[in-house]
C-alpha cells in the first residue's frame, strides 16, 4: 500500500514462551487489543518497522501531491480547482500528521525527508505514474484513493497509538477524496465522446498500477507475518486486493467503462471476481527507480527542499533574533 515493501527485521515470529518477560508483556498487550504508546517499552524491530512504515506512508502523501498538483492549474472549473486543491492540501496535512507520528518514535522529520530525497526511503509505486489528462484526476481519486482507503480503515486499529490516531484523523478527512474522483469519472464517462475516451484511457493506465498498491502476492510476501502479529499490518495484501477488485468492478460497470482485463469474471463458487495479476516485474522496476516518473518526482521534491532552505533558515534566524531581543529587554 502506501508502505508496500516493508521488510521486517525479525527472524520469524517467536512464541510467547520464547520471549523475555518484557517482550511477552508487550505482545500480550497487543494480543488483547491494547495500544502501545511512545514511552512504552517496545522491541527494537517494532520501532524500526514502524518508522519505515509510517515514514513511507508519510512520504507517499507528500510525493502523492505531485501527480494531482500537476492538474490544479488546469482544472476546468473554479469549483473543480477548489476541490482538487483542497484534496491535495489534505494530502500535505496527512503527510504532516504521519511525520509527527513517526517523530514520536525518535526520528526527526528532517532525517526522514533527507532519506526520501536521497532515495534511501521509498514511497508508494503508484505516484511514479504520470497524470496525462483531466480524467486521471478522476481515476486517481476513484482507484488510488479507493485502494488507499481499503488499507487505511483497518489501520485505525493498529497497535501503535499515535499511528492509529493519525489514521483516524486521516480517514475522517479523506472520506470525500474517493467520491470526488468518482464524481469526475461520472461526468467524464457520461460526457462527450472525447471525455468518455479520456475516462477509459485513464482506467486503462491506472488499473494495474492501482492493483500493485497492495504489494506483492501473499505467497511472495515473506515479511508480513511479524507485522501482522504486531498489528502494524492488519490484512494480507491479497485480501485487500480482492476486496478492492470486488468493490470496484461494479462501479466500473456503472460508469460504462471496461476494466482492461479480459480474464476478469465473477466466480460463483468463491463469490469473488477472478482477475489477472499485475505485471510484477514492472512493479519491482518501479520500486527500483525505473518507473515512468521516479526521476521527476524525486527531482521535484529535491528542488522544493533545496530552494526552501533559505526560507527555513531565514524564519528561524528571525525567531532567534526576536528571542534574544526579548531577553535583552527583560
Amino acid at each position: 500500500m502506501y508502505a508496500q515493501m516493508i521488510k521486517s527485521t525479525g527472524k520469524g515470529i517467536k512464541s510467547l514462551d520464547e520471549m523475555d518477560p518484557e517482550e511477552r508483556a508487550f505482545q500480550e498487550r497487543i494480543n488483547a487489543g491494547g495500544k502501545i504508546e511512545p514511552k512504552d517499552w517496545m522491541p527494537d524491530g517494532y520501532r524500526k518497522n514502524l518508522i519505515r512504515q509510517i515514514g513511507q506512508h508519510a512520504h507517499s502523501e507528500i510525493v502523492g501531491q505531485l501527480p494531482e498538483g500537476n492538474w490544479i492549474t488546469r482544472a476546468p472549473t473554479l469549483e473543480r480547482k477548489a476541490i482538487l486543491l483542497a484534496k491535495v492540501q489534505d494530502e500535505a496535512g496527512h503527510g504532516l500528521y504521519l511525520y509527527c507520528a513517526a517523530e514520536t518514535l525518535g526520528v526527526t522529520r528532517d532525517q526522514m525527508t533527507r532519506d526520501l530525497l536521497s532515495g534511501k526511503m521509498k514511497y508508494s509505486s503508484i505516484f511514479n505514474y504520470p497524470t496525462l489528462t483531466w480524467a486521471d484526476m478522476g481515476a486517481v481519486g476513484w482507484l488510488v484513493d479507493g485502494a488507499a482507503i481499503m488499507n487505511q480503515v483497518p489501520l485505525q486499529r493498529t497497535s501503535y497509538g499515535p499511528y492509529a490516531r493519525a489514521m483516524v484523523r486521516i480517514c475522517k478527512e479523506e472520506s470525500f477524496h474517493q467520491r470526488q474522483g468518482f464524481d469526475i469519472m461520472m461526468k467524464m464517462a457520461k460526457g462527450t465522446e472525447a471525455q468518455r475516451k479520456m475516462a477509459q484511457d485513464a482506467l486503462n493506465r491506472f488499473w494495474f498500477p492501482a492493483l500493485m498498491m497492495f504489494g506483492p502476492s501473499d505467497k511472495d510476501s515473506v515479511h508480513s507475518a511479524q507485522s501482522m502479529a504486531w498489528k502494524i499490518k492488519m490484512n494480507t495484501n491479497d485480501e485487500l486486493r480482492q476486496k478492492f477488485v470486488d468493490e470496484t468492478v461494479p462501479q466500473a460497470e456503472y460508469l460504462g467503462l471496461t476494466i482492461p482485463d479480459e480474464t476478469l469474471k465473477f466466480n460463483g463458487e468463491t463469490g469473488h471476481y477472478d482477475f489477472a495479476e499485475p505485471d510484477w516485474e514492472e512493479f519491482f522496476q518501479v520500486l527500483k527507480g525505473n518507473g515512468p516518473c521516479n526521476t521527476e518526482r524525486l527531482a521535484a521534491r529535491n528542488k522544493a527542499w533545496d530552494e526552501g532552505r533559505w526560507v527555513r533558515e531565514g524564519l528561524l534566524a528571525h525567531a532567534e533574533k526576536k528571542r534574544s531581543r526579548q531577553m535583552a529587554a527583560e
Binding site: 507528500i62 501531491q65 505531485l66 498538483g69 490544479i72 486543491l85 491535495v88 492540501q89 500535505a92 496535512g93 503527510g95 504532516l96 511525520y99 521535484a300 528542488k303 522544493a304 530552494e307 526552501g308 532552505r309 526560507v311 527555513r312
Partner: peptide, 12 residues
C-alpha cells in the same frame, strides 16, 4: 505552489 513550498506547514 501546491506541493512545492519550503516546508509542509507553509504548503498547507
Amino acid at each position: 505552489w501546491c506541493g512545492t513550498a519550503p516546508v509542509l506547514e507553509e504548503d498547507i
